[in-house]
Design a protein around this nucleic acid. Structure first.
Lengths: 162, 162
DNA sequence: GTCACTGTACTCGGATAAAAGTTGTCCGAGTATGCCTGG
DNA sequence: CCAGGCATACTCGGACAACTTTTATCCGAGTACAGTGAC
């Protein structure tokens, strides 16, 4: 089991979009080129982000994607759930209820004891993702990258380059 | 993304095995029948548990599976990793290193900032699973199930029944 | 000089194929048991 | 009556298909800009 690649790509895209000047958009093709990933498929992840209200898309010439709300209001959990779907990692199929030793009069606890453990662990995972915003990641990156990384990015994004 | 069904089945099997008298074995076919799941495929999960040293298998007539160590020494993380593999949920493909704005002189931080967040969340998930042993789950079940559930199980498991 | 219109080039969005991983199944190798035979 | 050997039936273990999910791709609908022409 592993998360889809789209989660990684979408996360990087959101981080890049968070670093853009206010109002600037970036088309999917450019984002794909920047990250070296297949463009048409990255679009799929970006569409998922748009459906979730994380990014806003503008059509037409000079259109593209931009964040729909401040980076400090977007958690990593939002990004993961947008791409991956909000389904739980562990889905209990209630096989305990199919045991032949069951009697009709038996009243089962509301949740399977095993599912309870799994859900508790999953909640811890979600809580950690929800505690980190995209702004946190950007802030963390700024302390690690070379000082001119932002300038280089903007230069590369200028239409004459690339 | 979701965990494979084998994780759920294996967990239930381990719990059942933990409730057996010392030294008693249970064949895979019986475990499958008990849970109402496809037998040959459940064997696959049980084999994984055996490879991980969680259960011990005995061949031959009246053979089967039993726990390899006390239930209090088996965590739910052990079970999940045995079936699902120890791979991490989020695998960083280091796409940051493929950006065209990169320069050879750039020294990258050891871990991608995004991967760091994902790994932190994953660690929280694992920690929660590692904090719960199979014995805990069994103890929890004993407070919820009807008092005669154990007797019913042993009756059903007796060779004359089924 | 200003405004409205039209053409164009670019964007997103969803519908459509290929690849991988998971799910499900089968048959062969190995082993402890129970029976049979011989002492 | 007891011990040894043998056939048996049962077990696990790994190798082999079918299906679902993920990955990858394409083409059409829609939109904002730029140029053109009329006023």
């Amino acid at each position: 089991m592993r998360l889809s690649e789209g989660v990684e790509w979408a996360s990087h895209c959101v981080v890049v979009l968070a670093g853009l000047p206010e109002g600037m958009t970036l088309p999917a093709g450019r984002l794909a080129e920047l990250h070296g990933v297949p463009g048409p498929y990255l679009a799929k992840a970006l569409q998922a982000l748009a459906r979730a209200g994380i990014v806003r898309s503008s059509s037409g010439r000079y259109g593209g994607y931009q964040l729909a709300r401040p980076a400090s209001d977007i958690t990593m959990l939002d990004v993961v759930e947008a791409v991956e779907g909000g389904d739980e990692l562990f889905r209990c199929t209630e096989i305990r209820k199919q045991m032949p030793i069951r009697r009709p009069s038996d009243t089962f606890p509301p949740v399977c004891a095993i599912a309870a453990v799994m859900h508790r662990a999953e909640a811890a995972w979600r809580a950690e993702l929800a505690a980190t915003t995209v702004a946190d990641v950007v802030g963390n990156l700024l302390t690690q990258l070379p000082p001119d990384a932002g300038d280089r990015l903007m230069t590369w994004l200028s239409p004459t380059s690339g």
